[in-house]
Computed example of a mutant assay.
Amino acid sequence: MFRSFTLAGIALMVSLAPGQAAEVVGEAGGWEIYRDANMGGGCYMMSAFEDGSIVQVGFDLKEDAAFMAVFNSDWTDITDGNAYPMTIDLDDQKWEADGHGVSDNEIGGIIVLIENEEFITDLALKNTLSLSNSDGEVALLDLTGTRDAVIATADCLSAS
C-alpha cells in the first residue's frame, strides 16, 4: 500500500518551513494549503498539532508522487536517511509503511510515499491518526477538518 522511500528528491523538497518556492494558496479545516514550484507546481496541506507534530500531506508533480511527512522536535533520535517501519492507524484502518528519516538535529521527521489513493480518502474521512513504531505509539492526531483540507489540496492541484 505504501512503497519504500526511494525518491530522495521529495526529502529535499519537503521541509518543516516552506521555502521561497512554496506559496500559501489557502486554508481549510485548520490546515494551510501550499503550492510549491520545487514540486512542479504540486500542492500540499500542512498543520501543527497539540503534541508538537507538524504534518504535511501532498502531491509532488515533479516526482509524480504523493507523500505524508510528520515532524516533531521530540524526535531528535531519528537519523537522516534511515528507514523506519511504522504503522499508520486511521480509526482502526491500519496501513503499514516504511518511512524515510529526515533530521537536522533540532527536529526529526518521517516521510512516506503513498501509493494507494485509498489512504488519502481514509485520511479525509477518519477522525484520528495514530503513528506507531516497534516501541509503540509515537503520535495521536485529531483529524478534525482534514476532509476540507484534502478537498482544498485537490482543488489546488486542479488549478495548477
Rank of each mutant, 00 (worst) to 15 (best):
L61S: 07
A22Q: 00
D98N: 14
A149E: 01
F5C: 07
R3V: 15
D74A: 11
G9K: 05
G136S: 08
A48Y: 14
G81R: 07
E106N: 15
F67Q: 01
N116F: 09
G101N: 09
I110S: 05
L16K: 08
E63A: 10
R147Q: 12
S130L: 14
W31E: 02
L7I: 13
D60S: 07
W75Q: 05
E106L: 13
L157G: 08
K94I: 01
G29S: 12
A154F: 11
I10A: 02
E32F: 06
W75Y: 13
G52L: 09
S47H: 11
A66D: 03
Q93P: 12
D80I: 11
I10E: 00
N72E: 07
K94A: 04
A139Q: 05
G29C: 14
I120C: 03
D51Q: 10
L12T: 15
G145D: 07
E96L: 13
G108K: 07
V14A: 01
Q93G: 12
L113R: 02
R35K: 12
F71N: 04
I114H: 01
L157V: 12
D64F: 14
R35D: 04
A11Y: 04
A65Y: 03
M1I: 15
T79K: 14
K126Y: 12
A65L: 10
G145K: 08
V112T: 08
A152I: 02
V24Q: 04
D98W: 10
E23C: 14
I88D: 01
E137N: 09
D155Q: 15
D36G: 05
R3Q: 13
L61C: 07
D74T: 09
R3I: 04
M68R: 03
H100T: 02
L129N: 00
R3T: 11
W95C: 01
R3H: 15
I110K: 01
S132C: 11
V150W: 00
W95Q: 00
A149P: 02
S132W: 03
D89N: 06
N82P: 03
Y44S: 01
Q20N: 13
W95F: 05
G101D: 00
W95M: 02
I114M: 07
E115P: 15
I54H: 04
A17V: 08
S4D: 15
S103K: 08
T153F: 05
G99F: 07
G41H: 02
I114E: 00
F71P: 01
A21V: 12
M13G: 06
A69H: 00
T76V: 12
M1L: 15
I114G: 01
G41K: 03
N116P: 08
Y44L: 06
K126M: 11
G9E: 11
D51Y: 12
L143M: 13
F59G: 00
G26D: 02
V112C: 07
A152F: 01
N72V: 04
L113F: 08
D142K: 06
